[in-house]
């Protein structure tokens, strides 16, 4: 029996807009994944604990508040601290290209900026989370 991929879609910090996150969540669901939505205003610790308990293959974080340079690295750190680097970590939002490059260097696997086609996000998640699944079973 093959299990569908499981992905956390999270919103962190003081950012009350979750339209984009919900669009991504639905697209992943329609691609056959189980999407766990955490709701707004989550701390990095809450997000990582959720991913561990849910045995998620990936975490997608949406940030529109401008706090991406603090929040993304905090999650990378939390994942390391919990020995959970196997979980794929990606994100999106209003993030300038130079910040996106810096975040990728600091361990975020992919950053999608507004206008990125949904199909690109879905195939990234399928591919990377699929690799994680092959590794851990």
């Amino acid at each position: 029996m093959s299990r569908p991929l499981r992905v956390i879609i999270a919103k962190a910090g003081l950012d009350g807009h979750d339209r984009g996150a919900k669009v991504i969540a639905r697209a992943l669901r329609d691609a056959g994944m189980e999407v766990i939505y955490t709701g707004l205003f989550q701390t990095p610790e809450q997000i990582v604990q959720t991913a561990i308990q849910e045995d998620a293959d990936g975490i997608g974080l949406s940030i529109l508040s401008g706090a991406h340079m603090t929040l993304f690295p905090l999650i990378v750190e939390q994942l390391k601290a919990q020995g959970a680097q196997d979980i794929v970590f990606f994100g999106g939002g209003t993030i300038p290209p130079e910040d996106a490059d810096e975040l990728r260097r600091r361990g975020v696997q992919a950053i999608f900026t507004p206008g990125a086609p949904l199909s690109e996000i879905v195939s990234f998640v399928e591919h990377e989370c699929g690799k994680r699944r092959e590794l851990v079973g």
Binding site: P4, A25, R26, L28, R29, D30, A31, G32, M33, E34, V35, I36, Y37, T38, G39, F41, Q42, T43, E45, Q46, Q49, T50
Partner: peptide, 20 residues
Amino acid sequence: SPFSHGALLGDRIRLTEHFT
């Protein structure tokens, strides 16, 4: 979903105070 076999699991939204 009976069509895609995917699912949106949203019950956690009400349980956030217990996540950590």
